[in-house]
Nucleic acid binder design. Structure first.
Lengths: 349, 349
DNA sequence: TTGAAAGCGCTACCAG
DNA sequence: CTGGTAGCGCTTTCAA
């Protein structure tokens, strides 16, 4: 590897002082046209890239935004990440991504990863950090986590998408409060369904609890009884949807419709249903509470709630950028869920 | 935001010199037990995090690995990223991820993003960088790209997963050379299929060209004619699979099986087939050339080539880490594709 | 419009 | 085993 070229070499090469080179790089003060050109030529010639270390040391800015997520493999996070990354780049920032592997089931071990991420963000001098899900999504946080999060928030602006912790210095933003669930239950109800199952999601995770709560409330509002045998939780992916639906079917609970936590879970549910000779939507209707990318390509096309995760991602990064700028806390837009009716739900009797 | 605490404050607080604090932080020299404890207590008390800027400036290491990918939304990249991220973290590195949005169709604009990423990696002092796909995957590279890549490779170890460029300082690694395609074609052939369509993928992208080449070769080896009406390219996602398959059907070309570029494309093809009243596998068999996460949950379960993208991710990051260590170039393991027979292909007449 | 010089926080070397 | 100190490459006064 060639040794990196420094500002001094550029200065020497163009016959000016380092201060002047710095000025042309940052446009921080007027420089004569002639000098500017000479300097730019030298920079070009040596493919000079100013050292972020040195810059950061004096400017106290890294132009790095940290993003901490549990599982980039999950389309929900992926969709958000894409927006975050895009907005960050547009604003001139690079993104340091930590994929923590956090899951409620393994919180004992995976919390370490999150704490480690918090520490690293401070070390790298991130100008702002986004905590998306993970332990922040849990109903109850571990004390170490709270402390770690707070330590970080004391040093750098942080926006967390998760369950609010009061007295915290981070700004918390929440996902939908369950309004979408009402729409879904009502849709199913209007189609004649009375035995509506809920499938997928992990207990203790705020979003699951919230949706389950909304599901119960919606049933109650419609005068339907709440039957706990109709809820089969597991996790957020296709295998979990399969498992949860399979369990539901085997246990013999009668139902005519299933609400799946998201498209992944719905896919698994489709599969489990088919395995038991049940057709969608002829025998069972399926609706997803969180649409991913391919709902429109499922067979049958999947009726789903579009939670506008891209907008959520945009909202979260905007809030962080605003916070970094020191702007007054803008009222964050909370995307409103939208029911997209496709082919997986059917009117019955 | 509280001002960051520095090593001097820790030194003062624990009544020792900064050198000593540095020693306990880095374990770079023996320190008496008593002193070590005092220092550690102070570090803990102030939640001290050493400045990566200052450290990097002197040590010339950032403990950052850069990853440049075109689309984190694509499960192929996502699967690789997860492995990369995991291995990097294990080795003590953080990951700076650039999602460039590169696509062959918009190379004109998106190449800028890649070049920008190269520059940023140098500025941030990445200790190594991984270029996964993007323009590196194209059959022909733009000169600016080559230059940008080379400039970066002159300063930092880089491993690129893509079409090899000779005379380059980056280490190139390639994805499968089409062996899997033979297996797929043979499988279909052995099931009695003679009219095998190829769907999805963008022309000019190395992997597509390679697979198309292998497809042609396999047909030839089996004594089957190559009918260009049987190939319908588009892109790598479900909508593209739909479009390509739909076009194929509408144009009236006869076929009994389709090879889809990947699971996303296969999903779209399933959909297009269904839209035309064609059943899988009764009327048409479908096979995917690149299995993603949910093949086993499709209905019917999707027969696919497992290209072991996770292993690829591991191979790529291992190669980079080795390169960073200055190890001799280890012969990189190239995962061998594996045909996973499920339910989407059927024996015919 | 330009240059000189003082650090930013840390590591590493040199003394002791 | 410990402390002092010289930079690392840059930005930012302060003078000229």
């Amino acid at each position: 590897m060639k040794p990196a070229v420094t500002i001094r070499q550029i200065a020497r090469e163009s016959g000016v002082s380092v201060s002047t080179v710095s000025r042309v790089i940052n446009g921080s003060a007027p420089v004569s046209e002639d000098v500017r050109r000479r300097v730019e030529r030298a920079i070009e010639k040596y493919a000079y890239a100013p050292s972020g270390f040195a810059r950061g040391l004096v400017s106290r800015r890294s132009m790095i935004i940290g993003v901490i997520m549990p599982d980039i493999t999950n389309p929900y996070f992926t969709a958000m990440f894409r927006e975050i990354s895009l907005a960050a780049q547009r604003a001139g920032y690079s993104v340091l991504l930590f994929n923590t592997g956090f899951s409620a089931a393994t919180a004992g071990e995976t919390t370490r990863n999150e704490l480690e991420a918090f520490k690293v963000m401070q070390e790298k001098g991130a100008d702002g950090v986004l905590v998306v899900g993970g332990q922040a999504d849990l109903v109850r946080l571990r004390p170490e986590y709270r402390r770690g999060l707070e330590d970080m928030a004391n040093r750098v602006p942080v926006v967390a998408l998760g369950n609010p912790v009061d007295g915290s210095r981070c700004q918390f933003m929440e996902r939908e409060r369950g309004q979408g669930i009402y729409m879904a239950v009502e849709h199913l109800f209007s189609l004649g369904h009375r035995r509506i199952a809920f499938v997928g999601g992990e207990t203790d995770v705020a979003i699951t609890e919230r949706r389950l709560g909304a599901y119960g409330d919606a049933l109650a509002a419609l005068g339907l009884p709440y039957d706990r045998n109709l809820v089969s939780t597991s996790d957020y992916y296709a295998p979990d949807g399969w498992r949860a639906a399979d369990r539901l079917i085997r246990q013999g609970t009668a139902f005519t419709a299933v609400m799946a936590m998201n498209d992944g879970v719905a896919l698994g549910a489709y599969r489990a249903l088919a395995d038991h000779g049940l057709r969608v939507p002829e025998d069972v209707s399926v609706i997803s509470c969180d649409q991913f990318f391919d709902a429109d390509y499922f067979t049958p096309r999947l009726t789903a709630l579009n939670q506008h995760n891209e907008l959520l991602g945009q909202a979260v990064i905007s809030a962080l950028l605003a916070r970094m700028r020191g702007d007054a806390q803008s009222r964050p837009l909370k995307p409103r869920p939208e029911l997209v009716v496709r082919e997986s739900c059917r009117r019955i009797s």
